[in-house]
């Protein structure tokens, strides 16, 4: 039942702020965002050859040092973590019952509330388009 009501939340009933982010649902627009990021990276990379930077550490002044470090460090961390998981991952109830990993958060500390579009629609007449 809960799931039904959740699925009824249509894009039109979202707040104006949320609507500004709906582009992430569109594959084309996400691709555009990636192209923009790639373009930005290209510009930043080229700037390295144009501008002289101050540097203290060895190799820091080599063009592309930070770009390469950023890309490789990120990849190393993500891939390394993937390998690490193979060694150390355990089922969620591994430490149960002495750890909270496998238990639900107690309901009395929560205030679950479903998104209520009607209220919001009243608040923003005219901004629907």
């Amino acid at each position: 039942m809960k799931n039904d009501s959740q699925k009824q939340v249509s894009d039109d009933s979202l707040t104006p702020l949320a609507k500004r982010f709906l582009w992430v649902e569109s594959a084309d627009k996400v691709r555009l965002a990636i192209y923009i990021l790639a373009g930005l990276c290209a510009v930043l990379f080229i700037l390295d050859f144009v501008v002289h930077r101050h540097a203290y550490a060895p190799n820091e002044n080599t063009p592309g040092f930070y770009a390469l470090t950023g890309f490789l460090a990120f990849s190393f961390i993500v891939l390394g973590a993937g390998l690490l998981r193979k060694l150390i991952a355990k089922p969620e109830d591994y430490y149960a019952p002495n750890a909270v990993d496998a238990e639900d958060y107690p309901e009395e500390g929560l205030n679950r509330e479903e998104f209520a579009p009607d209220e919001i629609v009243e608040n923003k007449p005219g901004s629907g388009s």
Binding site: I34, L37, A38, L40, C41, L44, F45, L47, D48, V51, H52, R53, H54, Y66, A67, L68, T69, G70, F71, L72, A73, F74, S75, V78, L79
Partner: peptide, 22 residues
């Protein structure tokens, strides 16, 4: 400083690029 902003943006944008790629 220009070089500080530039290097930090290089580091972060290329790391983001790595995320997109992965």
């Amino acid at each position: 400083t220009f070089s500080h902003v530039l290097t930090q943006m290089q580091l972060l944008c290329f790391a983001l690029l790595a995320f997109v790629y992965l």
